[in-house]
Amino acid sequence: MRQMVPEVKENPENSSIKTYPGALTFLRKHIFSSKGLRDRFSAGLKKNSLPLAFLSPAVIFVLLITFLPILHAINISFYETSYLQKTEFVGFRHYWNYLQEPAGRQNILNSLIYVFGSLILAVPFGVLLATLLHRNLRFRTLFRTLIILPWVVAQLISALLWSWLINPSYGPVNYFIQLWFGFPVDFLSQPLTAMPTLILVNVWRSFPYPMLLTLAALQTIPEELLEAAKVDGASTWTRFWRITLPLIQNTLLIAIIMLSLYYFNMVTLPLVLTGGGPLGATEVISLRVYREAFNFYHIGYGSAIAIYILLFNILFSLLYIKILRTEAVC
């Protein structure tokens, strides 16, 4: 058989080929090139076998467990579901419905308030503490350790700690409130106070993040720059606004983007602290997904809302990548 092939190629008088003029060149070209391709491929595989063997398990793993489920979620989001079964194709109806229903709009508004409210408190607070910790201080390490501590506390545990701290009957916070105002406040059961409380707990847990990033950025600012400005008579305030801030602004932008995503995707803290209540006042979009899917088993509808979250994340990630790129250019 092996000898047959070159014979066919070598002998243009072969009858079957003669009937199709041009077949020989086609065959030759084809066989030659595919052989070359195969050769090149296997040579490449051999040369690259080690890195491929090293890298592909991680890649396959990640693709299987994060990309595949996303396709699955997109698929389900177009169906009506009953318990875990797809029943009827509904196209974009879930997507449309979520924007139409009042609870959906309330979720979106809540998420915006939650994200912006937390950012407005956590970022300046983090930056302030970072600039203070950057100075030459006594007990600097001690202060830093204590201040970072909330960041390693789980969301669930933060919710438990705070709900005990602000307990209306026995908590120390309400003891003082009662002392000063004469009545206790049940923060988590009033629509007006529930969201600010949720934001406060979130800020408590997350402000170390912008603080750490800022602290790292401050260490890259040359000491002489600030010294020179000081000699020229610039006040602490001016030095911060004119020198420090412009130099750390990219870091801050990154911190803001990462925190926005982190806040936006949060489920555990609102779920455990308020459960979305009272009257949906703290039900953010991500919590709604969880409740639709696992409290009511509306898998299709929940997936559609989840895809909105995904789109938001993609948008912000693109921003993030853009900033990283410009930073790399600088």
């Binding site: 489920p69 996303i70 699955h72 979620a73 489920v267 991500s286 929940g302 979250i309 994340n313």
Partner: peptide
Amino acid sequence: MIPGIVVLIP
């Protein structure tokens, strides 16, 4: 960048 809540259902 893919949030847990998005892949939780699938």
